[in-house]
Amino acid sequence: MASIKIRAKASDGVTTIKALIKHPMETGQRKDKKSGKLIPAHYIQEVTCEHNGTAVMTALWGPAVSKNPYLSFKFKGANAGDTVKLSWVDNKGESDSTETKVS
């Protein structure tokens, strides 16, 4: 499901991660315009980012994070070529992850 686009760029010892995740982030409060029924909630609850197997950031998200979420943060201690892994889990138990190299 390649749902994640991620970039990791190191500069002066600080690595900046920028990621875009393709996800509906449905709040559970919206109604289907045709049927008038509520669209069930479907949103990412947890995003984890690991650098060489160590978690550098864990994000807990509620339904109020925008559709197709964008996420950016910075951490120290990574070198070019290191592996950064980003994974997410949503409220339906679906998940995805991807890996990229620090450039």
Binding site: A59, L60, V65, S66, Y70, L71, S72, F73, K74
Partner: peptide
Amino acid sequence: APLTASFNLGPNTEGYVSTRIK
């Protein structure tokens, strides 16, 4: 529900996050 997102930072993570909210 006011809480939109909470980011737990690792020991080497800088005090910076950026995202988009509703």
